[in-house]
């Protein structure tokens, strides 16, 4: 649309799920807007957890409100129309229909009839915010963000988790670069998140029913160079 920067496709590199993918605008092949990335579907493929679809619509969005309010809202959403099957199941767009990611997520197809409600998997919005416990069951913090990189088959697979204290997304990207301004905001964000650590996916076991991530070793590495 404008500028060469926007042509860059972030799906070909390493991305942070909450920072780069969640809540992005969905744009179809003709530039029409069709919703937000209200959540992201994760599927266990072999040993990897891969991004298989983006989820959109109230069923996904209301669950992201989180906690009891979130569950209650999803329930109310279903009760609005009891005759409709699978109303709590969010609409999904398969990653096959996704073209590229820049400041928006661009589809390779037109928006008409692109949404499906055929499958329900794990959600990134559940993973971020999960409690993280160490090998002896001690609380380490919460999942702040999840980092993905392209796997062998081209799909994005989970490579590491950012663990710290606070709301998912509240790192605001200041964990990725040490020089991102303005100084005032960077200093405050880094101070608030000084205990944030990064954990390799192989050291983290995700227990979806209990909403807990259990680590096989205690992490000590700060994400990238920002918290040095």
């Amino acid at each position: 649309m404008s500028g060469d920067e926007r042509r860059e496709n972030r799906l070909e590199g390493r991305i942070d799920g909450a920072l780069h993918l969640l809540d992005r605008q969905l744009v179809d092949s003709e530039g029409a807007l069709l919703g937000k990335v209200d959540d992201v579907e994760l599927t266990q493929v072999g040993t990897h957890l891969a991004i298989t679809a983006v989820l959109t619509g109230p069923a996904a969005l209301l669950a992201r409100i989180g906690g009891r309010t979130g569950s209650a809202l999803v329930e109310k959403w279903a009760q609005l129309k009891p005759a409709e099957p699978h109303r709590t199941r969010p609409w999904r767009i398969d990653m096959e229909d996704v073209d590229r990611l820049d400041s928006a997520l661009h589809l390779s197809v037109r928006r008409d009839g692109v949404l499906r409600r055929d499958h329900e998997g794990h959600r990134l919005g559940r993973l971020t915010g999960m409690a993280v416990r160490g090998p002896d069951g001690e609380r380490v913090g919460r999942v702040m963000d999840a980092r993905f990189e392209p796997g062998d088959d081209g799909s994005l697979v989970l490579c590491s988790l950012m663990v710290g204290h606070g709301r998912p997304g509240s790192l605001l990207g200041y964990d990725r670069r040490g020089d991102q301004g303005p100084w005032l905001v960077r200093t405050v964000v880094r101070r608030l998140h000084r205990h944030t650590v990064i954990v390799g996916a192989e050291a983290a076991e995700i227990a979806w029913p209990e909403s807990t991530v259990r680590l096989s070793e205690l992490p000590s590495e700060a994400p990238d160079h920002a918290f040095g």
């Binding site: 909450a18 809540d23 992005r24 937000k36 992201r64 409100i65 709301r167 997304g169 605001l172």
Partner: peptide
Amino acid sequence: RERLGPRLGL
């Protein structure tokens, strides 16, 4: 919404 998330954004 992208920076504050759905809840704070709302």
